[in-house]
């Protein structure tokens, strides 16, 4: 047999537990009925990377390829070309991201010397084939925050 004090403590803990669930019952639900409403993203949310653009619409990317080399999932490919008439600066011709392989680690944005990559706030992607996930970030609408 347990001691009386232990029994009283146990009974009080049961009441305490009931209090916890009662508070949860009157609180607002934290889930949302998904297709008709979506949860607000936390401020630090990291979606897959997007290219940062200057106010005139030009990408900052200098096509050095550091992101593609650093990517642990090897899901980036940068095709570079020298742009005529701008002092021979390299510009990306295609900036391919395979969304289906990206692990959202953010290493690409960390290593970028030009600060040309940012985290987007996109979190949904659907396609009918694997190839369709291969996205050219140059053609994507601006989604960087």
């Amino acid at each position: 047999m347990r001691s009386g004090a232990e029994l009283v403590r146990g009974a009080l803990s049961l009441v305490q537990g009931l209090g916890v669930t009662l508070r949860a019952m009157v609180a607002r639900p934290v889930t949302v009925p998904y297709p008709r409403a979506s949860a607000t993203l936390p401020p630090g949310f990291r979606g897959w990377p997007v290219l940062v653009r200057e106010p005139d619409g030009a990408v900052r990317c200098v096509a050095c390829g550091a992101c593609a080399r650093a990517c642990p999932s090897q899901c980036l490919r940068v095709d570079a070309a020298a742009e005529r008439g701008s002092g021979g600066r390299r510009r990306p011709q295609a900036f391919l991201l395979d969304i289906s392989r990206c692990s959202l680690c953010g290493t690409c944005a960390d290593v970028c010397p030009a600060g040309a990559l940012a985290y987007s706030r996109v979190r949904c992607a659907a396609a009918r084939s694997r190839d369709a996930f291969l996205t050219d970030l140059l053609n994507m609408p601006e989604e960087a925050p």
Binding site: T21, A24, M25, A27, R28, P29, V30, T31, P33
Partner: peptide, 14 residues
């Protein structure tokens, strides 16, 4: 419904 509320869900909605 109550189970949902106790777990801070909505319960049946549709």
């Amino acid at each position: 419904k109550l189970c949902g509320r106790f777990q801070r869900r909505h319960g049946p909605l549709e």
